[in-house]
Structure formats: C-alpha cells, structure tokens
C-alpha cells in the first residue's frame, strides 16, 4: 500500500500528497508569517461534469517521488521569483468525491499583489507539470484518463494529432 501521506520541504516551501481530506486551515498555517501582509489560498474542487457529461467520481494517482520533486521545484522557483515568505502545495490522491478539494495552494508574501500572482502561477505550473493523473468515471461507460492540455512544453504530441 502507498503511505497515506508523502511530503517534502525546504526553506519556505512545503509539498505533500495525501489520501486524506485536505484542510485549508492547515495549509494556511504552514505559510503564516509575521513578515507577511497577505496569504492567498486556492482550493481546486472536483466538478460533477466534463463538457456537460455527468461525472460520477474522480480518482487521482501519482508517481509519488517524481511528483514531489516537481512540486518542490515549482515552489522554490516561484518563491524566489515573487519574493514570497512561504509557499505550500498539497494534492489529494485516490477517490475524491464530487465537490471536495483535490488541491490546495497557499502562498504568503509581504504584499498582496505578489501573493495573488504567485498563487495563480503555482497552480498553472502544477497543472502543466506535476506527475499526477485524474481518472473520470462516468455513469454507465468506461472511465477516461484526463490530460490537462495536450501540446504544452514537455508533453509530446503524436504526429498524427498535430494537424487536428
């Protein structure tokens, strides 16, 4: 069995993957700092449809050591570029019922502008690069592995698909 929590950290950066419920308060407390004037937190929740098709449930799996490595590298990069005090990202794995949190991103910064920008950038970088996969189960048909977006850097497109 996978461990229920896998985590990694370095100065001002914390990343984790867990099979447990995500708690917004916990991740906010991780980035709290007396030098910060703002904490921005994002919660991604599981949607009940894909392009109008009803989704019964979602299941996430990960290449845990590589996903943690990628998440930590995103955090150190964004923390440095936006002058953050601290940044934390946690992603849930396994079955996530509809409407629950699948990812939390929290950043703290001396001022709100940097915090807003860094939070958005961290989430977008995660969606592009972190080695976590979402399987959507539909009513009465086979589930599919979702791809966030084909054709981004680092994601090779099959030649036959390039024209389409």
């Amino acid at each position: 069995m996978e461990p229920s929590l896998a985590e990694n950290s370095e100065e001002g950066c914390y990343v984790a993957l867990t099979h447990e419920h995500l708690r917004a308060q916990d991740i906010m407390d991780r980035v709290r700092s007396p030098q910060a004037g703002a904490i921005v937190m994002f919660a991604g929740t599981t949607r009940d449809n894909f392009a109008g098709k009803p989704v019964k449930e979602l299941q996430y799996s990960a290449y845990i050591p590589l996903a943690l490595k990628t998440m930590l590298s995103i955090c150190t990069d964004i923390r440095a570029r936006h002058g953050l005090m601290s940044i934390a990202i946690i992603h849930r794995l396994g079955i996530v019922p509809i409407g629950e949190e699948s990812i939390l991103v929290a950043v703290s910064a001396p001022h709100r502008q940097a915090a807003w920008r860094a939070g958005e950038e961290a989430l977008e970088d995660c969606k592009k690069h972190v080695e976590v996969w979402k399987r959507e189960e539909f009513q009465g048909e086979e589930g599919i592995w979702r791809a966030n977006r084909d054709g981004l850097p680092g994601q090779k497109i099959a030649e036959k698909d390039e024209e389409g």
């Binding site: 996430y60 699948s102 592009k128 080695e131 996969w133 979402k134 592995w145 966030n148 994601q155």
Partner: peptide, 10 residues
Amino acid sequence: VAIIPPVSSG
C-alpha cells in the same frame, strides 16, 4: 524507468 502519460493534476 517510468512511462509518463500527459499529466492531469489539479
């Protein structure tokens, strides 16, 4: 070695 399909976190 690992085969890494297009990712879909978030």
